[in-house]
Every structure is written in C-alpha cells, then in structure tokens.
C-alpha cells in the first residue's frame, strides 16, 4: 500500500496512511504513515466503535499537514475489545437443533448436511442483516446460495464440475463460493448473543461445522487436482494460516 502513496504523491497529492505491518512501512518508506497495533483486517481498531475509529482517522489525517517526510508515528492505544483468551472463552454458536429432525452428517451426505446447517442458521443470518439495516457482505459471487452450496460440495468429488458462472476463471469461482459461504456463516454466528470474537468465530467455522469439514475436503480436492492454479489455492486461499491444523491429514 505504501507504494501507492509514493505514486500518488509524486503526481502532486498529499497522502497519509494507516499501517498494520510496520516492517513493510519501514521498507517502503511512504511519505506519512500512522502505525496502529491492531489485528490484520482491522485498521480502524474495532467494529461499531465510532469514537475510537474517529481518533485513529484524525491521527492519520493530521499527518497530512506535515510537509517533509517520511513520517512514521505510532498510534498509542490498543483497540477496544482486544480480548484476552480468557475473555473469549464460553462463546459458542448455538445452531437450532431439533431432536425430531435427524442429524445429517458430512460423511453420509455432504450437501444434505450443509443445507441442514445453513437452514438452522438462517434466522440468525436474517437477524444480523436486519440489525445492520439491510447490509450483508454475502453475494460477492452473485450466485444464489443454494446453487453455490451445490457447486461447492460437488468439488469434493470433481473439481471439473460445471461452475455456476463461466465468465470468470474457475479458481475465482471456487474462491468466491468459499468467501460467500463463509460470510453467511460468520454473519449468522455474529448475530447471536455473546461476545463472539474473530478467533471464536473462526475456530467454530473451521473446526466445528459441516462447512468446515466440506472446506477441508474441497481443499484436498484442489491439492490433488493436478491443476496448478487450484493446487496453489489449496495451500493459500481456502484455509487461513491460523486454521491450517484443520487440513486433512496427508498420507
């Protein structure tokens, strides 16, 4: 990102930035930067914390008034809700189980298991969307979630199965499908009561759900596909580094 600052500044416009990886900022040496000690993905600290976000933004913008650089300042505060491990214990996503309905397992019917799980989360997902006045981050693939689920599960046995969109490369279709499903689950789980953190959400999603198991199976299919792009994706684009322990054991 710091390189963009150089390119824009050289055309005559002042730039400032928030930096999350100080080592990168020191290497790239942009004109003005505010280093913030927050998690990757959270450059303004924490969601729904407008006062805190405003302090970060003001601190970064204030650097615009410096007319010699490079300037690299540290933001002095930790993000609100930077919870310790102890604080996050106890959160669990409550899926709407019913004893009257047979539990479908991924082993016997992956698509059935996925649909059952997604149905059970539906009311939570809807509640989350309502709370955010209609905003959802699902829909990046522009494919209906039912069709997307069928496609994603089909990849377990056949990475060449017909994609729902043919106007984008296959690897991108696989990635967007994975991202859309993840967005649906995360939004649903985050709508539940309790202090769900990104760690507890990720641990639940990758470690305790049917979609987590399916993702590990798709990851493995991609790894064994013989397709160079899908093979690369399997190690880098489907499972985050911090959830790699959910990869299938490889013989």
């Amino acid at each position: 990102m710091g390189a963009l600052a150089h390119y824009i500044e050289r055309e005559g416009i002042s730039t400032t930035q928030v930096s999350l990886v100080k080592e990168h900022t020191l290497k790239i040496n942009p004109p003005r930067a505010l280093w913030a000690p927050f998690e990757l993905g959270r450059p303004f600290g924490a969601p729904d914390e407008p006062d805190f976000q405003r302090r970060v933004l003001k601190a970064a913008l204030k650097l615009l008034e410096r007319d010699s650089g490079p300037v690299l300042e540290d933001f002095p505060e930790e993000a609100p809700g930077s919870a310790s491990e102890e604080d996050t214990e106890g959160w669990a996503c409550v899926v709407n189980f019913s004893e009257a309905v047979k539990e479908i397992t991924v082993e016997e019917d992956p698509l059935g298991a996925l649909k059952q799980e997604m149905d059970r989360l539906r009311s939570w997902y809807d509640l989350g969307v309502e709370k955010r006045n209609g905003r959802t981050t699902v829909g990046i693939s522009e494919v209906d979630l039912d069709i997307l689920s069928e496609y994603f599960v089909s990849l377990i046995d056949d990475v060449d199965s017909a994609p729902p969109r043919t106007d984008i490369p296959r690897f991108q279709m696989v990635k967007l499908a994975a991202d859309d499903l993840k967005a649906y689950y995360f939004e649903a789980a985050a709508a539940q009561p309790g202090n769900a953190t990104d760690k507890s959400l990720a641990d639940w999603y990758y470690g305790e759900t049917a979609i987590g198991k399916i993702l590990a199976l798709v990851n493995e299919s991609c790894r064994l596909s013989g397709d160079e792009v899908l093979m690369k994706m399997s190690d880098r684009r489907l499972l985050p580094i911090h959830q790699k322990h959910h990869k299938l054991a490889v013989n």
Binding site: G41, F44, A46, D48, P240
Partner: peptide
Amino acid sequence: TNFDRSGYQQDLNICFP
C-alpha cells in the same frame, strides 16, 4: 484469507471509514 473479515462484516468503517 489471512486477515479478519468479521469486523468488516459487522461494520464497513473498520477498513473504509
């Protein structure tokens, strides 16, 4: 996949203020 997206899902301002 290696950064948190749950914050952005909750509040766009976390990365786009």
